[in-house]
Design a protein around this nucleic acid. Structure first.
Lengths: 342, 342
DNA sequence: ATGAAAGCGCTAACAG
DNA sequence: CTGTTAGCGCTTTCAT
């Protein structure tokens, strides 16, 4: 049932030319006679010839493939609500440019190094889009310094690296300021794990907004969590037990914001009257719950698109003028933050 | 900066053996002397040799790669809330078995055929996991009948095809029956597009449940929609304008269920008192809204895992005993369907 | 304008 | 036990 694959040799034989000529003809090389070209094309068409990309890759030393590498940690990747959108943006651009997309998860921390290395050098992919997890990941410098074409989704302390980064600092700043503008002064910040750059940047933005508004930063209001609903809920409980007073929560993602809202409700506190809440990610759920959640919208699809465009540019030898690209986020104001409708 | 890739030839030269011996040594072939084996391994290690998979693939005529093909229609794939979970299940198994995952979207309907064909025959992937969109898609029979190793996610009318299917009929039956058990008799079914197999199966399950409970099927209660919240909302409006009376809605996905609930609220109707609602997919949002949504849980991750296991089995020459696998769904009962707590 | 031949990196059949 | 050789399918000089 399974058809034998027909090769260039086959169509050359049928067309009565050499494989070299056939190859040139199909590549549209001007040196080849128009008539032979037509003939070869006709035969290829008739035999439904599809070039074997593997052979082509071996010869060309490139695979026309981009790998998306991401560590599949519990806080990252698949569980991230916006992973799909990133993927969609990347896919969209790669398809347009006839690149393939190879998905590479690194299963366990243990063989991450090996996994990276393999992808780097086994030539299955010509370039990499790298979604970092923790900044502690020691493999990342290795990849980046290997000189392999890579687009890094995040901040990296080296100007030579092509990066696409979100303005997490700015987003956090804006969210915090929104709460302050609404009259809140004791603002809890539920962070993600603090070995993530995104978490650090948000804390900075939060602190800066406080400072610019002459509010003293209170360490008791900074709570490290893990992006999960459960932990946010628990954090609210804990704050209650410790009798910490606060009138707002800025959570590092919507899941935690929602978890916190549930925790608050369980304590008999109302949102936004008693405690105003803002999250990050602007997931669909936030729009549907009561009260609707104010959130920082992250343009993940746009980031995916930009990342793919950059890597394609690098692989096709174009110049990257601006290596660092900053994508700004925007605050979507809904009921939960206590802003009065105007 | 970018290192020249070292090849098998290089390590053979350094180790002072032939490439053949080097190859065998690294493959752990018992014929090669223990000492030479150690030597070669040491050199490979030292030079950080990573085999070029492209060369290997060309030789072996396989790529150790599985492609996931899905048409990126508005109702499918990226917008589907459960796409990520499918992906996760697939990825998990493929990683375990050292297969790569190639993601193939078909951009526009126009060149779908070409896209499929290319993937089928350019040998970048050894096997395919196929997520169908419409059953009208004429490319699907072609792929399947080409004899290329494929796992089809859905129902296919041919016993030779390896499929993983959800029990959409059973799920719809169970949901409908639950509503009937709760005393509802005029049950609206908001379907997905009726050229999707899933939609058809659900309609069948719905009808069967009605019939088994001696409720006459009323065509006015069967409303074709498009999986979107907006259309569900509009459908509820339309039913109102046409003065259609009903006491329950079974929606073909949670998005529509949620849209319908919003529409009902706008009409001043309460859920579940006036109208009981059940959705499909059991998305996270359903758990968080008020009233919490009863929904059919779809084990997409499990499906992904099974699909990947099957395709790996096929590619490694194992026997597939049961070609058709049916995965059952389960009803997650929450408030919206009006079931009394016990 | 076309063909012959080399070679990308790898593995496997066959010698020795 | 190891080396020689051929060839996977393709592109690309280099001759003709």
């Amino acid at each position: 049932m399974k058809k034998e694959n027909i090769t260039l040799k086959d169509i050359a034989k049928v067309a009565g030319v050499s494989t070299a000529t056939a190859s040139l003809a199909l590549a549209g090389d001007p040196r080849v006679n128009f008539k032979t070209k037509k003939l070869v094309e006709e035969v290829a068409q008739r035999l439904q010839y599809v070039p074997n990309e593997i052979g082509r890759s071996l010869r060309a030393k490139k695979a026309e493939t981009v790998a998306l590498i991401f560590p599949n940690t519990p806080h990252n990747a698949f569980t991230h609500p916006y992973f799909v959108q990133l993927l969609e943006g990347i896919s969209e651009v790669l398809v347009q440019n006839s690149f393939q997309l190879l998905l590479s998860t690194t299963p366990s921390e243990a063989d991450e190094a090996a996994a990276y290395d393999k992808i780097l050098r086994n030539r299955r992919a010509d370039g990499i889009i790298l979604w970092p997890a923790s900044i502690k990941d020691s493999n990342i410098p290795k990849i980046i310094e290997s000189g392999f074409p890579v687009v890094y989704l995040g901040k990296w302390h080296h100007d030579d690296i092509v990066t696409i980064q979100r303005d997490d600092f700015g987003g956090a700043y804006e969210a915090t300021e929104q709460l302050i503008r609404n009259g809140r002064t004791r603002i809890v910040h539920l962070t993600g794990p603090l070995d993530y750059q995104v978490s650090i940047d948000r804390v900075e933005g939060y602190k800066q907004a406080l400072q610019d508004n002459k509010i003293l930063f209170d360490p008791a209001l900074l709570v490290e969590a893990d992006f999960s609903r459960e932990m946010a809920d628990a954090a609210v409980q804990k704050l209650h037990e410790e009798s910490v007073r606060y009138d707002a929560i800025f959570a590092a993602n919507d899941r935690m914001a929602i978890g916190a809202m549930r925790g608050l409700r369980a304590l008999g506190l109302s949102v936004p009257q008693d405690v105003a809440v803002i999250g990050c990610d602007n997931i669909e759920t936030g729009e549907l719950i009561e009260p609707a959640l104010t959130s920082i919208h992250q343009p993940m699809r746009e980031i995916g698109r930009l990342a793919a465009e950059r890597i394609v540019a690098m692989l096709t030898g174009q110049d990257i003028t601006d290596k660092q690209t900053m994508v700004s986020s925007s605050l979507v104001v809904r009921e939960s933050c206590g802003t009065l409708k105007n």
